[in-house]
Amino acid sequence: MKTKLILLPLLAAVPAFFTGCATDAHYVQTGDKEQIVSLGQINIQDYATAANDAIKDLLASGALDHVANPPALLELSRIVNNTSQQVDTDLLTKKISIALLQSGKAVTKSVDAKATGLQQENEFLNDQKSTRLPDFTLSGKIIETVDRAGSTRRTTYSFQLSLNDTKAGVQVWEGEKEIGKQGTRSSVGF
């Protein structure tokens, strides 16, 4: 009788346990607490964290405020990828350019061929040469370093960014964000 009393709740708990383990597909928000911490690659949360850090640091520095005709004109330059993976650097730079545009502190030079062509046509038709040169360029580098101890692996991604003044030829702001991930395998949650 006693054994039965113990066995019954146990049997009832088994299906509940397995239901709890199943993860049905569902929509998630970037940066939620269920995010996957991927050990060997840069994920969307890493780009968001790096961009967030760079933007608040850049805006707080006031480096973009020292231009004759605000808002500053910014051209996105090269982001060197020194990692073992293929990286679309737009995942980082687009976030930064959107935030700068929304802040009213800078506009980015268009990379759309159609827009550039129309601008040149406008200049020709109006017989004027008014192309504004960028006040700043934004360049950077993403570096990956890997350390191992037994089966534990630590991967650190360094996001380095520089704001270059095109007139003076100097770097007026620099920012670096290091994102480190350690473990034996990727996991959900952090």
């Binding site: 968001a48 964290t49 608040k56 930064i96």
Partner: peptide
């Protein structure tokens, strides 16, 4: 509310 990347969650 002003939505922006600055409002992204940070671990």
């Amino acid at each position: 509310q002003v939505n922006n990347i600055i409002s992204a969650s940070v671990p």
